[in-house]
């Protein structure tokens, strides 16, 4: 008995030790980024980024507040895209899911298959790029950040359909139908309020996907004509691309008509500003986020 107790304790302690180690590993790069953004630029250039910089400085943030137009604009774009995208995605997904959750609907199988087949096969990036840029002329418009790929996916459709079909009792909708309520009314007044948990979960996932997205902008926005539409992620990405461009073409200097590159600490400060809202909001939504993953609602 005594031995058993000890064994449990050993497991407890080792579990805590491993978890503390992993949590530190997960957190450490963020702390480094954070400290780097508060480091004096010359110190960073001489000593490199460090957890214990010799000289601290607020210069990077002062620069950003002076240049708030660029960063602030990117912030507004990120919020706009996230709000419109998430709302649109919730509307389209829940309506489609409601339609195919009706077991008697003629053609329901076809609609479900149409959705599932998109998970099995796709036309590839090149034809998708061609369709959006040449057929729909979406390049350098805000729709380029909202519509391609993110608006609806078969996986969330399946989750919402299953919720509608299994967690909402059909007798409720049946009763409403007998009372003469139309389908739109039933959907908006009964189905949606009863499905808040799943809608909140997929809404959260959608919002994170839009907030973090940079690939749509990479394909459909050009710096010259679409730069004013850049979200925070795209500003961060374009800073990198310009630095890489200079690193690979060292004979061209920054003065040759290209944008002036922010100093090393300013880059880190912009990155901090980009992740801060997520980190601050995380404690409030992490419960739903974890629940969503357990449901299989977050795709990698």
């Amino acid at each position: 008995m005594n031995f058993k107790l000890d064994e449990t304790r050993v497991w407890q302690y080792s579990a805590h030790i491993v978890m503390i180690f992993l949590s530190v590993c997960a957190l450490m790069p963020f702390i480094l980024l954070f400290i780097a953004s508060f480091t004096d630029n010359t110190t960073a250039m001489v000593n490199g980024y460090s957890f214990f910089p010799e000289k601290w400085s607020l210069d990077a943030y002062q620069y950003i507040t002076r240049e708030w137009r660029t960063v602030g604009q990117a912030y507004i774009m990120t919020i706009l895209v996230t709000v419109i995208g998430t709302a649109g995605s919730l509307a389209i997904t829940s309506m489609f899911a409601y339609a195919i959750s009706n077991r008697n609907l003629p053609g329901r199988k076809l609609l479900s298959f149409m959705s599932i087949f998109t998970m099995l096969f796709n036309g590839g990036i090149v034809s998708s790029y061609y369709v959006y840029s040449s057929v729909f002329q979406i390049k350098n418009t805000i729709w380029a950040l909202i519509i391609p790929n993110l608006l609806m996916n078969a996986f969330t459709v399946m989750l919402v359909r299953n919720y509608f079909a299994n967690s909402v009792s059909p007798s409720i909708t049946e009763a409403a139908r007998i009372d003469g309520a139309g389908e739109f009314r039933i959907f908006a007044r009964i189905m949606l309020p009863l499905s808040v948990p799943i809608l909140a979960t997929i809404g959260l996932m959608g919002a994170i996907a839009y907030w973090n997205d940079w690939t749509n902008g990479l394909y459909f926005l050009t710096e010259r004509d679409g730069g004013h539409l850049y979200t925070v992620q795209l500003v961060l990405n374009s800073i990198n691309e310009n630095i890489n461009f200079l690193a690979n073409n060292s004979q061209i200097t920054a003065s040759a008509g290209r944008m002036e590159l922010p100093s090393t600490t300013i880059r880190m400060a912009i990155a901090v500003i980009g992740i801060l809202p997520i980190i601050l909001a995380y404690p409030f939504f992490q419960k739903y986020f974890i629940k969503g993953i357990a449901l299989g609602g977050v795709k990698e």
Partner: peptide, 16 residues
Amino acid sequence: PGVIYMICNNYLPMGG
């Protein structure tokens, strides 16, 4: 709306 979206986003590119 979902059907239209899938046609634009998924099925047209398949033809592409």
